[in-house]
């Protein structure tokens, strides 16, 4: 695992608007979880806070629990409650 590798973070719909952007990269470190990334984002962008309880997490296009450990190169996505159909 290289120290310079990053995790790509995607945000959609209400989360994208609250964060002011839909895509960013965060540096990877050992032990990093999806919940850690959300916590950091939320402290930078308090508008995300109301979404914390309802947002789903996906890593590499699969739903996962928030405490999932991230690997360098992962694509992490925060998904507000879906409303297709």
């Amino acid at each position: 695992m290289t120290g310079s590798a990053a995790v790509t973070v995607l945000l959609f719909a209400a989360a994208r608007e609250a964060a002011g952007r839909g895509r960013l990269e965060v540096p990877h470190r050992e032990g990093l979880t999806a919940a850690d990334v959300w916590k950091n984002l939320e402290s930078e962008r308090p508008a995300l806070a109301p979404l914390a309880g309802s947002v789903s997490v996906a890593v590499n296009h699969r739903f996962v629990p928030r405490d999932t450990l991230l690997a360098a190169g992962d694509e992490l996505a925060f998904l507000p409650p879906v409303s297709g159909g």
Partner: peptide, 25 residues
């Protein structure tokens, strides 16, 4: 399915949200 709709109505617009319980698997 990760799709979201925004409703544009007379007087505003809003993200429509489905079940609030996060999907974890």
């Amino acid at each position: 399915v990760p799709i979201w709709k925004r409703e544009f109505f007379e007087g505003g617009d809003v993200w429509v949200e489905g079940p609030k319980e996060p999907v974890t698997e």
